[in-house]
Computed example of a mutant assay.
Amino acid sequence: MALSPRTETDTLEDLLVEVRMFSAEFPLLLANHLPMILVALDRLGASKERLRDYFDTYRDTNGLVPQPPPVAPISRESWTEALGDRAREQDYRTFFEAEVRRIGIDAAIQTYLPTLIPGIGASALHGMMRTAYGVMRMDPSEVGTALGYWSATYLTMPRATGAAPVTDDPGQVLARACELSCLREVEPETDLLWHNIRAAGEKESFAPVVDWLAIGPDTGRRLAETSLALFAATMDFSSLHALTGSHWIRMIGPHLAEADRPALQRYFWQIIASLVPKIGFPSLPSAEQLDQWRHLPAPGWPEIAAAAIQSDDEHDISLVFSAREEEAVYGDRLYRVVAARRMGLIS
């Protein structure tokens, strides 16, 4: 693929158009974070020059590749038949970009996302991430691309059965998952995050986990709170996706019909529970420990954002942006502490 010439007038929108030329994954089966990170950088205050520099560095370092060639058109009548087939990425993206143009962002999400939610582990939650960033900007092209990405990488996991939940505490779900002997025997095909998720989902005794959490009006806040505690305790790559994922489901939820929002929370937390072996069977810290960390000296968001803008690590930028956005909603200073720690600004 020919490189685009650098210009001094590249805008975020220009770069997003350019990045859609590439596949949503790059070898071997890694999520292409570039479109989402460009948005995060822009919102953190990066200059247009920094956006272009980041684009070029990410593209070249990761060896981004074009979409696979089209196979056959996807139709509205049979669109689910190729879910999870990465060879159909371009077909799915073409279909959903047309659907979003036809009926609009919210109607497309309400029509198709309830079917996709049980496969939320798609590309290790990054189909959901791209959807969240698309709706954050109400960008029809990005939402269509994201729904196509989610479809082509759909990850089959155990389905909810409607069995009675066992707790309304997301932390208790993780604690119970840590006690499952089957998760001590998980052997993923590779160390890819979504391979770890899939390997856990294939264990028969993991299947009930998806029904464990009682969903209520306060579940979104409790998921965010537990994800923050988990990341603060571990500073782990996998638990980072719990914190950022809580942000993403908060972004997507209002665009779904109210009846479909609990499934988004339920299946998201199933994925986080599947990762407890990868995280190291963690224990959540006490309220006292969390409060101690919460009051550690930490720089303000402008300094943290400036450090993230200079980083070439997509997970630094993703974490800092999501943590800043979540603190603005929930008011918990611990978000600032963990972001500063991630950026090496405090120990």
Rank of each mutant, 00 (worst) to 15 (best):
V186A: 06
P170T: 08
V143Q: 05
Y154N: 13
A263M: 11
A214S: 15
M157W: 00
S239I: 09
D139Q: 04
L155M: 09
E179M: 09
H247I: 03
L213V: 12
D211M: 11
A152I: 06
F237C: 00
M157Y: 00
L243I: 01
D139P: 01
I252T: 05
P140M: 04
E202H: 06
D191M: 13
V209C: 08
A152Q: 12
L155I: 09
S181P: 07
G144F: 00
V210N: 01
V186M: 07
A259T: 15
G162T: 00
Q265K: 09
W194F: 11
D169F: 08
T226H: 04
L256V: 06
Y149I: 09
H255C: 04
A199R: 02
V210E: 01
R266Y: 08
G253R: 05
S181T: 15
A257I: 01
A257R: 15
A163V: 05
L147Y: 03
G171T: 06
V209Q: 10
L155Q: 15
Q265M: 15
T226L: 08
A146Q: 11
T167H: 10
A242M: 07
E142G: 10
R184H: 14
A199W: 03
A177G: 04
P158D: 02
A177Q: 07
I215M: 14
H195W: 06
L213D: 10
A229I: 05
D236Y: 04
Q265H: 14
D260A: 13
D218M: 05
A152L: 02
E185L: 12
Y149R: 08
A163N: 10
A257M: 10
S141Y: 00
S151I: 05
A207V: 04
L193M: 15
E258M: 07
R266C: 08
S181W: 13
H195G: 02
A214N: 13
D168R: 15
A200W: 00
P217N: 11
D169Q: 12
D168S: 15
A242N: 12
V209P: 09
D191H: 14
L174H: 09
G216L: 01
A175K: 14
L264T: 04
T145I: 11
A160V: 07
G201F: 04
A207W: 05
R250Y: 00
E202S: 08
T167G: 13
V143E: 06
S238N: 07
L243V: 14
L228S: 11
D260V: 08
I252A: 01
M251V: 14
G162H: 08
E185V: 01
M251N: 13
V143M: 07
